[in-house]
Design a protein around this nucleic acid. Structure first.
Lengths: 246, 246
DNA sequence: GAGTGGTCTAGACCACTGC
DNA sequence: CAGTGGTCTAGACCACTCG
């Protein structure tokens, strides 16, 4: 039996996509928080008055977009950055020698500022809107490899302090998720090769002017809203940026 | 109550995956060539004695892996590199200024050699096996941006000449596909920042020692067989390597 | 209009998890 | 054991393409 709410083209949207956007609303509103179970497929089917297969297809898409995680026998969960396997999704740095290393994030500074023209454009906020800036060092096996500057809109993150950052154990995105309810779902990175300036060179223990990998990232939360801009300099002496082209 | 110690099937594979590997066989054997239509879902369902939904699920997975392309009303086609939209899948270089540019591949040299230790390891072939080496320049809007050295196993590509490369209009992967029946389905890239050596600096018109983006790539065809290794140096003065993290 | 993929349904059974 | 997601089926109808 066809479903009544399916209208013919040109604004045609299949039923499972309508269900999908209903589910997305729940995620955006925070009704279902990261790590939590969502209702079972059969319950959602009853609630939305569609067949289980239609709910299933909606969830399938969201699972393939890393928004939900299915676990057979247990249920479907809202994706979270707590999972250490998800770490490599956003930090594509691997040792040249092979193997696995533990990354250590060392916050150096954290202050409040007003958005300059570049930050405002990247974060889609107004000039002089309040932002938080974090300077950070990333080390592998105790050796500094990345120095980062991270720009976070004050509207979303409120006031951030160095203490908060230093107290938290785990990844930055996991921190954002649990402390501010901000979940990063995708990011765009732009890579270039640049000469090391003096301060970066000192921190990464490389010669001034030697080549570094510049990585600029804009991260987005639901509805493609940009909520983080960061510029990092990567020392690629012992590590490389690994990318898989599918 | 614990389950009986005899697990039902450690090698359990759902029906649609078995169908999928049957379809993969057709692709690997070259029975269905890039760009061609494959039989319709209903015909495959009859042929394999399963329901259409099961065939559909197998094809769904292969479409999401860029092996097949569905076109409503027309049929399902073997994916090809001819499609210019697929170009950016493997060359993630965009102008800093924004906009779109036409890339131009300029083959410089092409010779036959024996695999050294590094090439042999990357291509999973034996030391001293015959390989083809191509040196190439990539230009955007007439300006040189990338200089490449490409290593291709002789077993797969036979003998390659500069004439063949220069005669072909289109991307390199499109060339490999049509001339040698080799279809690249995925690749791994490793990026570093390195100082420009003299010859590269001259070709890219940058100062010797200035930072360049080093991109090493291994490309794989069906069954994860490596069939290309390339080392490129990218000038990131006017362009950057763009990557989307999902 | 005939043939293709795309959506939706209803129901059956399997595999896994935890009580 | 009940409840979850995972697979498979059969059939209906929709949307698109092409002759």
């Amino acid at each position: 039996m066809p479903h009544p709410s399916v209208s013919p083209s040109p604004t045609f949207s299949p039923l499972y996509r309508q269900i999908k956007s209903l589910l997305l609303q729940r995620l955006e509103s925070g009704e279902w928080r990261p790590g939590e179970v969502i209702p079972s497929e059969s319950e959602l089917a009853v609630r939305f008055q569609v067949s289980q297969g239609t709910v299933r297809k909606a969830i399938d898409e969201m699972a393939s977009e890393n928004l939900l995680v299915r676990r057979q026998g247990k249920g479907t969960f809202v994706a979270t950055h707590d999972d250490p396997r998800a770490f490599f999704r956003f930090l594509r740095l691997v040792p040249l020698a092979g193997g696995i290393e533990q990354a250590q994030s060392i916050p150096l500074e954290c202050w409040r500022a007003k958005a300059g023209p570049e930050a405002a454009r990247m974060l889609e906020i107004n000039l002089s809107d309040p932002i938080n800036i974090v300077r950070r060092l990333l080390a592998f096996s105790g050796k500094p490899v990345v120095v980062d500057e991270i720009y976070l809109p004050g509207e979303v993150f409120g006031i951030l302090t160095l203490d908060m950052l230093q107290a938290y154990k785990g990844s930055l995105y996991s921190f954002f998720e649990s402390q501010f309810g901000v979940r990063m779902i995708r990011a765009e990175e732009r890579l270039r090769a640049v000469p090391a300036d003096r301060t970066s060179a000192e921190m990464l223990k490389v010669a001034e002017g030697s080549p570094l990998l510049s990585v600029e990232r804009v991260s987005f939360t639901y509805a493609d809203k940009p909520v983080e801009w960061r510029r990092g300099l990567y020392s690629t002496h012992d590590h490389c940026y690994f990318n898989e082209l599918g």
